[in-house]
């Protein structure tokens, strides 16, 4: 199949698909970049003059921008921390032989199938609501004042909800990694006098390194663009306490009808996501080669 003729034929035949995909990706991207240099507000129709970097300057110097950056970092970092550590612990538990294993595994995986909006609303109304929520009831029955999650610890509440959604993913990947660990290695370590903790630390964790890398990479990409959970619970508030970059772009372009500003934010988000991706690939991509 690797003759010159077949290769050029192959190139010719995949070219329509490549062109289509490229167009699909490039046209919206180019339009976003183009809009980001215009003064383009839907509330002031008319001509849309070219204004250079003005949109970018306004977007970046907006006090909510730095808040949104920090919130994004806290959100991504917090969820990554909870899901990887929690995922390792769940995977360890689920790897033990126990009664009703199949059912328990399905139940642990279940949150992943719940739509983000639905999941967030369930948490908001049934768990975290200070009056009707279960946490409120528990607090009251213990004689404590119920916590109003979304006004006193808004960002942490979002982190909790998103972690709940992503924990199954981490657990699933890490569980399969655990199952691929050669039992003889563990037995050898046991013979070598390693305690359970030492076996975990020196044998299991290094074996999991690659799976953890995958979990972090994939989750980071998705967590940078968390939106629905914020929209249905806090609307980015109180103030800008739970506004992340995605939500800020939504606020600029759809609530303030400022297409130019929104596009500028979008371009910044794309650049940031790429920086993070390159950084992550560099840092932990090594893990994937070995």
């Amino acid at each position: 199949m690797a003759t010159k003729a077949s290769r050029s034929a192959a190139r010719l035949m995949i070219s329509p698909a490549v062109v289509l995909l490229l167009g699909w990706m490039l046209i919206p991207l180019c339009m976003t970049v183009y809009f980001s240099f215009l003064r383009f507000n839907l509330l002031n129709p008319g001509d849309n003059p070219f204004v250079g970097w003005e949109n970018y300057r306004w977007f970046v110097t907006d006090p909510s921008f730095s808040a949104a950056m920090i919130n994004t970092l806290v959100l991504v970092g917090g969820v990554l921390l909870i899901t990887t550590i929690g995922g390792i612990m769940f995977a360890l538990l689920l790897d033990q032989p126990m009664w009703g294993q199949g059912l328990i595994r399905i139940m642990v995986i279940a949150p992943f199938f719940v739509m983000p909006t639905v999941g967030a609303l369930v948490w908001k109304n049934m768990f975290m609501n200070p009056v009707n929520g279960i946490f409120g009831h528990i607090a009251q029955s213990l004689g404590a004042a119920p916590i109003d999650f979304f006004s006193s610890i808004p960002l942490l509440s979002i982190v909790l909800i998103v972690s709940w959604q992503w924990l199954p993913f981490a657990t699933l990947i890490l569980l399969t990694a655990f199952q691929s660990l050669d039992q003889e290695q563990l037995e050898a370590a046991e013979m070598d006098g390693a305690s359970w903790f030492n076996r975990f630390w020196y044998i299991m964790l290094p074996h999991l390194a690659r799976a953890i890398t995958v979990v972090i990479l994939i989750q980071t990409i998705f967590l940078l663009s968390i939106f629905a959970e914020i929209l249905v619970t806090t609307n980015g508030g109180p103030g800008v306490a739970t506004t992340n970059l995605t939500y800020l772009i939504y606020v600029s372009s759809l609530l303030q009808y400022d297409v130019g500003m929104g596009s500028a934010g979008g371009v910044i988000a794309i650049i940031l996501a790429n920086i993070v991706a390159i950084f992550l690939m560099r840092m932990i991509g090594k893990n994937l080669d070995a």
């Binding site: 050669d182 003889e184 290695q185 050898a188 046991e190 044998i203």
Partner: peptide
């Protein structure tokens, strides 16, 4: 437990780390 028996084992799959 295995570690306390003072025996060493060589496995078929070598079981190296």
């Amino acid at each position: 437990p295995p570690a306390k028996r003072g025996l060493a084992m060589v496995f078929q799959s070598y079981a190296l780390y």
